[in-house]
Computed example of a mutant assay.
Amino acid sequence: MTAATLPKPDHRSIDIRPGRALGKLELGELWRYRELLYFLILRELKIRYRQAAIGAAWALIQPIMTVAIFSVVFGHFAKMPSGGVPYPIFAFTAVLPWMYFAEAVRRGSTGLVADSDLIRKIYFPRLLVPLAMVAAPLIDFAAGFAVLLVILAFYQVPITLYILLLPLFLLVALSLSLSVALWLGPLSVRFRDVMHALPFAIQVWMYASPIAYPMAIVPERWRLLYSLNPMVGVIEGFRWVLLRDGHPDFRAIAISCVIISACLVGGLVYFKKMERSFADVI
C-alpha cells in the first residue's frame, strides 16, 4: 500500500460548550440522559439511609412525631380550629406536603455543591442534579401517605374521588421545590452562605404557611398578601382533596400556580445561564 492510498487522518473534533442563548434550554438532553437521572435518584436514596439503624423507617417517624407535637401544642393547648375534622388529620394533610417540599428544597439547593467532584470531571446536563434531588423525597412522601391513609381509616374519614386530584397538587409542590432549587442551587455554588441560611429560611417559611392553623384565621384584608406564599395554595389543595373541608380558596391556589410557573421558567433560564461557570467556581 503506497502513501497515496493511505486513508487521511480525520482532524475533525467536537467542541462541547454550554449554550449562550438564554432561550435555548436544551431540555431534550434530559431524556437522553434519563438513565443517569435514575441512578442519581437511587444513589441519593442509598446515601440517605446508609448506616441508619432503623433505615427507611425515618420516613414514617418524622411526620408522625411532627403531627404528634403539633396536636399537643396547637390542637390541645392552643385550641387551634381544625374545620370540624380531628386535629391530627388536619395537621397531617399539611405536614405531609410540607415535609416533602422542605426536604426537596434542602437537597436540591445544595446538590450541586455535594456533587462538585462529579461536575468537575465529566459532562452531563447539570439540570439532572436538582431534578434527582427533588425527585428522591417522593419515596418518603409515599411512605408518609400510606400512614395518612391508615389514620383516615382510624378516624373513619371517607375517601372520595377528589383524591384523584392529589397527583396534580403533588406536581405543583414538586414544581415549586424545583423552582426554588434552580434559583438557590447556582447561588450556593458561589456563596456558601446559602447553605447556612437555608434551614432558618425553611423554618420561617413553615410558620408562614397554614400547617398548624387554618387559612380561615388570617384576616380577610391580608388574604391576598398571604396567598403570595405559594405553599398556601399547595396545602389548601391537599386538604381539599383529602378532607373535602368545605370549599378551598381557589384564588390562593390560582395565585400559587401562577407564581410557581413564573419562578420555574425564570429558574430554568437562570440555571442555564449560570451552569457554564459551575465547574470553574465550585
Rank of each mutant, 00 (worst) to 15 (best):
G111A: 15
F145P: 05
A132R: 06
S175F: 13
S179G: 04
Y207G: 03
L174H: 13
P199I: 11
V157D: 09
L198K: 03
L164A: 14
V189C: 09
P158F: 09
F169R: 02
V204A: 11
L164H: 09
L148I: 04
L174N: 09
I159P: 00
V150E: 05
A212G: 11
S188G: 04
F154M: 05
I119Q: 06
A94S: 11
V172I: 13
R190D: 08
A142N: 01
V150A: 11
L198W: 02
Y162P: 00
H196S: 14
Q203W: 06
I151A: 13
A104K: 02
P167W: 12
R120G: 15
G144H: 02
V134E: 01
V147P: 02
G144N: 02
L171G: 14
L112V: 06
A143F: 13
A91Y: 12
W98K: 06
L171F: 12
V113L: 14
S209K: 00
P199W: 02
V147Y: 04
A173Q: 12
A181Y: 07
L168C: 14
G84Y: 11
V129Q: 02
L148M: 11
I122N: 12
A208G: 12
Q203L: 12
L182Q: 01
L165R: 01
F90A: 01
P97K: 05
A114Q: 15
A136S: 13
R190C: 10
A146C: 10
G185F: 03
F101C: 11
G108M: 04
A142V: 12
P137F: 03
F141V: 08
A212P: 00
I89G: 00
R106P: 01
A197S: 12
A212F: 05
A94I: 00
V204F: 07
F92C: 00
I89N: 07
L127A: 07
G108L: 10
D117M: 14
M133N: 14
A197W: 10
M206V: 02
L178Q: 04
A136N: 03
A114P: 06
S179E: 09
L171D: 10
A132C: 10
V105H: 05
P137E: 01
F200E: 07
A146G: 11
M80H: 08
L168D: 13
L174V: 15
M99S: 13
G185I: 04
Y162I: 00
A94H: 04
F90W: 10
L198Y: 04
Y87D: 04
L148R: 03
L187Q: 03
P125I: 02
P137L: 09
V150R: 07
A208R: 05
P199Q: 06
D115L: 14
A136M: 08
T160S: 15
L131Y: 02
P81S: 02
L131E: 04
R120T: 13
A173I: 03
L165N: 07
I159A: 09
I89V: 15
S209Q: 00
F154N: 00
